Computed example of a mutant assay.
Amino acid sequence: MKNIIEQKVRNGYSLDLGKLIDESFANFKKTFLIAGLGMIILSFVMIIIYLGILGAFFGFSNFTETITSLEVLATEPGFILGNAVITTLFSALFAPITAGFINLNHLAATQREFSINNLFEFYKGHFFKTLFLSYLLIGFTTAVITSAFSLLGFEILNSLIQICIALFTIFTIPLIIYGEQNYIEAITKSMQLFIKQPLIIIVALIIAGIGMFLGIFVLCIGIIFTAPFIYSMYYVIYAQSVGFQNTSPIDEIGIE
């Protein structure tokens, strides 16, 4: 598999926007119920953790005052740096779940059974360490740059940098779970692969983003079930650009 990845990095690859849309939607139709349930669970967990952190730092007595305090503190250097640290840790800790959402599409595309448990498979074994370290590094880099821009008051550049980092690291998780790459290799190869077809990838992700936000029109909570469409697009981009060996690391460890 590593040889295939090297060839793609060296020689490039082709993507068909129409196929990306068709295949991602086909996988999404198979996975949206399980993925939507996973999004609900993940949302509850994140809300509880976030409220717990707020309560620990600002007290549980009056959350209205706490929210008001956050608006005031949002421009304070200490708060910006603290928020960056927490965001980095969250990103690293939840990276295995992102891998689970992506792999759900692989199971669907390869006609295998899947369940809600598959979303949490990557907290087991060697994958967790590699995924955690990759997103700890990505999150740290993002946090350092965006914190600097926030402190300087360049919020527009801040957002642009976050988008660019997300785009250049789009292949990182698939390269880890399917491509046998360590976290440094995955990040490096992801950047090299992205620059081979940046325009098609960006357009595909914009279309996926539009599809994702259409859920807002279904009683607003519908976005919980349409949000996983973005992971379907991540998977199909990797499948079309790099592909898989007949036997992948996922098959060998029995994740089904």
Rank of each mutant, 00 (worst) to 15 (best):
L107G: 00
F127M: 00
I221Q: 05
V218N: 14
S190K: 05
I195A: 06
F127T: 02
K196V: 11
I200S: 13
F154Q: 15
T130F: 06
G153F: 13
T172Y: 01
I216D: 14
I163G: 03
F168N: 14
L133H: 07
E113F: 09
Q111P: 12
I165V: 09
G211F: 11
T146M: 10
Y135L: 08
F154W: 14
V218E: 14
I145G: 04
S150G: 12
T172L: 13
I161F: 04
R112V: 03
F149G: 06
T110N: 14
F171P: 00
E185V: 05
K189P: 03
F128S: 02
T110H: 10
I206M: 09
Y183M: 05
S190R: 05
F128C: 00
G222A: 11
F140C: 10
A109Y: 09
I177R: 08
L157K: 01
T169V: 08
Q197N: 13
T146F: 00
F217S: 11
T130S: 14
T146V: 00
G209P: 07
K124A: 11
P174D: 12
A148D: 07
F128Q: 06
E121F: 02
T188E: 04
F140T: 14
I221R: 09
L219H: 12
I163K: 08
I184A: 14
Q111E: 15
I173A: 12
F154H: 11
Q162P: 01
G209L: 06
N158K: 03
C164S: 15
G209F: 06
Y135Q: 15
E121K: 07
I202T: 12
I207R: 03
A208L: 06
Q162M: 15
S159F: 07
E155W: 12
I221E: 14
L157C: 11
G211S: 03
M191G: 15
I173H: 01
V144R: 06
C220E: 12
I221P: 09
G215T: 06
E155T: 05
S134N: 06
F114P: 08
T172D: 13
K196C: 15
L119K: 00
V144H: 10
L152M: 15
F154R: 09
T169C: 08
R112N: 10
F149M: 10
L131Y: 04
G211V: 11
R112C: 01
Y183Q: 02
A208P: 01
I138T: 12
F171I: 00
F149V: 02
L131E: 06
T141P: 00
